[in-house]
Amino acid sequence: MDIKDIIKPENKVYSKTSLMTDNALSYCPGCGHGTAHRIVMEVIEEMGIAHDTIGVAPVGCSVLAYDFMDIDMTQAAHGRAPAVATGIKRLWPDKFVFTYQGDGDLAAIGTAETIHACNRGENIVIIFVNNGIYGMTGGQMAPTTLGGMKSSTSPFGRDIGTMGNPIKMTELVANLPGVYFASRQAVHKPSNVRKAKKAIRQAFENQKEKKGLSIVEIVSNCNSGWKMAPVQSNIWMEENMFPYYPLGDIKVDDVILGK
């Protein structure tokens, strides 16, 4: 069968959602942000809620998320996205509100906003992309940088004794009663993308049902910051990030798993 006979509109089984704009993504080659963006937008498209959704972009690599997500969006100050989302959601309780934040934004400078939005049980979704480094500013140590991991501000490796431990933010907030759903996923392999998308769908369904806060962490790569080729960075992520940040649901239907 000729390829020309396969490539016909009626045979199309996958293309990017129309809720992703045609702007070329500003992310480095192989960066998981693009995939994470796309599956969030796919969920919003599949639920038919694009007209009722307001996203909050952070400061970090995804500061320009609003260039790529074709929905109403607000760009928040560094770390403040959960407070900004709170302000929107409290006044528009029937709209869907989500934040999209990196590890520096959510787990360092925005720790207070994150914890208190979670503790109040704000009925929002938090998408938390954790790549263990500050990508946009050039590869500095993040709150989630692994012990021994090199960055431009831990050039000899993160010394736990003086620089502190990498913080497991999703487990931490899962302990708060306001958090209804907490899950950690990845987007580097097809099976992971499917699971991550399922978790994001669950999070938005929870918001629809007014269940409280849902957080989906996506452990991702930063090949530029980690100074590796994209495929190599994904292998490194599996071997080093996943043991410390294990994938899977952490809290489902208000119940912490394994407790």
Partner: peptide, 26 residues
């Protein structure tokens, strides 16, 4: 009218920012 005690002044002004962006009087 919604009244919320925030966790800090920083959070409070950012709640204002989010809500003001939706055109509300905050």
């Amino acid at each position: 009218m919604i009244v919320l005690q925030a966790e800090s002044e920083v959070a409070a002004i950012n709640m204002v920012y989010g809500a003001a962006g939706t055109g509300k009087r905050v």
